[in-house]
Amino acid sequence: MNSNLPQAQLSYWIAFKAIFVRELKLAWQKPSQIIQPMVFFLIVVTLFPLGISPAPKTLQMIGPGVIWIAALLAIMLVVDRLFRQDFQEGTIEAWLLSTVPMSLLVAAKLLAAWFISCSVLLLISPVLALLMNVESQVIPALMLSLLIGTPILLFVGAIGNALTVSLNQGGVLLSLLVLPLYIPVLIFATSLIEAASFNMDYSGQLAILVSMLLVSCFFAPVAIAAALKNTVN
């Protein structure tokens, strides 16, 4: 073992894949990561007709907004335990010491988290649209807005989680930090759906949502890496 041999240059793609596969294995080991947000999403939506009124007309009016708020709260649930276990076990420290930039590793984890927890929300949203008596031509717009909106919520929420990961009562503080950042996403997504319900052209809101997605995709991992480096010392 001649230890002065230079290390095999760790390509970024191999590290990205390693983290992605690790997250999938973890999700396979603990399926509650997949099922819990979905059932929470379902239950929160069923509360609204019980709370407000089952009249088809009112449900139709509040439908998309209710589904979006429920998705937002479900993602808050997912975001709350993104880095908590890794931080407590010291995995975050070891990631910081690897030769691959930390933002890349964080991006891999967030992408895997989206596939594991948020894509399921997308899949059951038509069923919820049925529950809320949403017209059928609005459903594609609803799913499109969720497809683009949920990653934004996840990336932005992860920043909040990275900042509060070392505090033990992080959950309460997390919602305080992150909810204000969720408001623009909610506004544009619901106005997109409303435009679709009057079958007007909603490409304007769509463009804004996509730009939000691109901005958060690039800046969130960097911010999260900085936050984790800060909380680790």
């Binding site: 690790r22 973890l26 603990k30 276990q85 076990e89 010291g90």
Partner: peptide, 18 residues
């Protein structure tokens, strides 16, 4: 530097679910 270092901290980076 980091290529040549192995660090085993007090929290030893082993995931308990895997």
């Amino acid at each position: 530097f980091l290529q040549q270092v192995l660090f085993l901290g007090h929290k030893f980076a082993i995931n308990s679910d895997l």
